[in-house]
Design a binder for these strands. Structure first.
Lengths: 211, 211
DNA sequence: TATAAGTTGTCAAAGATTTAACAATGTGTT
DNA sequence: AACACATTGTTAAATCTTTGACAACTTATA
């Protein structure tokens, strides 16, 4: 089997396709052409066809794409055909907010536990999820088939935590602390960097100068 | 004066430069070369020089860049030389978590109020910030020189809210609801899309197939 | 003061991404 | 069944982004 090199740019667009296809599916739309989807999503039809072709021919000439089928295939590409078990490290307000986000659960992401160092928080339930002591981290990860770890701890604790998580077998980290986490090649990290995102907004004037 | 077209790609990298420069500044580092910074940030020195040159010559040949000066200049580009007044729409757990994030305050983003439709929440203080009724939205925005609005409401309420915000004069929206908000050209939106980001993590296998 | 070493700003080449174009193929209608 | 229409998959061109190379200049040293 041929090993195609699929660019990160393309992969980064898949969740957005998935989102629009979910909406179409909910609306009962059975088929859609790249042209119509492109209007909806505000991209070129060419890009959609090019993107989808990276993964094989999901469409049919003269017909377009079957919404249900395409939704399923992109879901598979995104790893959404199987549920994922997550833990949240850091039971602060951000960690707690993430624990309560219903979107994640609907997409098959199951938050199994939270972890914190604060004895006051340990043992409590937040949005129905128990807060454990960090000392239980290793055993919990191994016994509960944990896929993904969310890092929602203060920036100065993030790097040590990351090392421990990797050591305990975690291969996917969702990082909300305001620092870049360096990881080995076989570990995936998504750095969310909320502050960076906010700064892009306050930067508006620069963007508008050259309009 | 020449109106240079600066690409979004470059602007998107500014907050990261700013972050690393803040760290260097805190450490007391006075000067840095593009080469050393490139090692630190894990990018090419060429990219750093190319990026910075979009905005004029911040460095000095044979010397490098003065950390303090460069930090200040990038800060200006990002609009951080002046404080910004924000409101949070939606006093759910995500809105509340954002209200309590100390990073934002340190960077000069002042959260002036929260808004919600739930009468139980109205009048309460969350992280020291008062929750107002939506009916006060227009007056509050106009009287408090609000710059940026955070949208942290359920997805089905997001679009109506966006229209109101724009109507009331808001020109920058930080959107956390899981939908794309379409806005006129003179309004800036940053769509955060947490679920999209999480999906990129569960997609890991695809990326690793072609390694 | 002369020289060697270091570093930027900038140009051009290489690489990646996006867009346009169209042949091939399927659908729907008469 | 034949024809007009719609739409993909795919190729090639255009555009954008990144990288490499080096002249011009600064600093430090002898």
């Amino acid at each position: 089997m041929e090993a195609r090199e699929i660019s990160k740019t393309v992969i980064a667009r898949l969740p957005r396709y998935f989102r629009y296809l979910s909406e179409l599916k909910d609306k009962g739309t059975e088929r859609i052409s790249s042209k119509d989807l492109s209007k909806l999503m505000n991209v070129t039809a060419s890009q959609i066809r090019q993107d989808l072709n990276n993964f094989g021919g999901f469409g049919q000439q003269g017909y377009g794409y079957n919404v249900d089928y395409l939704h399923g295939e992109i879901g598979k590409l995104l790893g959404l055909d199987k549920p994922h078990n997550l833990i949240i490290c850091g039971a602060g307000s951000l960690g707690t907010a993430l624990a309560g986000n219903p979107d994640f659960i609907n997409a098959g992401f199951r938050i199994k536990a939270m972890f914190d160092i604060d004895p006051v928080k340990i043992g409590k339930f937040l949005h129905g999820i128990e807060v454990h002591s960090n000392s239980e981290l290793e055993d919990f990860i191994k016994e509960n088939d944990i896929d993904i770890a969310i890092v929602a701890v203060p920036v100065n604790a993030a790097n040590d935590l990351k090392d421990k998580l990797i050591d305990h077998g975690i291969r996917a980290i969702w990082n909300f602390s305001n620092t870049d986490l360096d990881v080995p090649d076989d570990v995936a990290v998504e750095n969310v960097h909320l502050l960076d995102s906010l700064m892009k907004l306050s930067c508006v004037k620069v963007q508008h100068l050259d309009a």
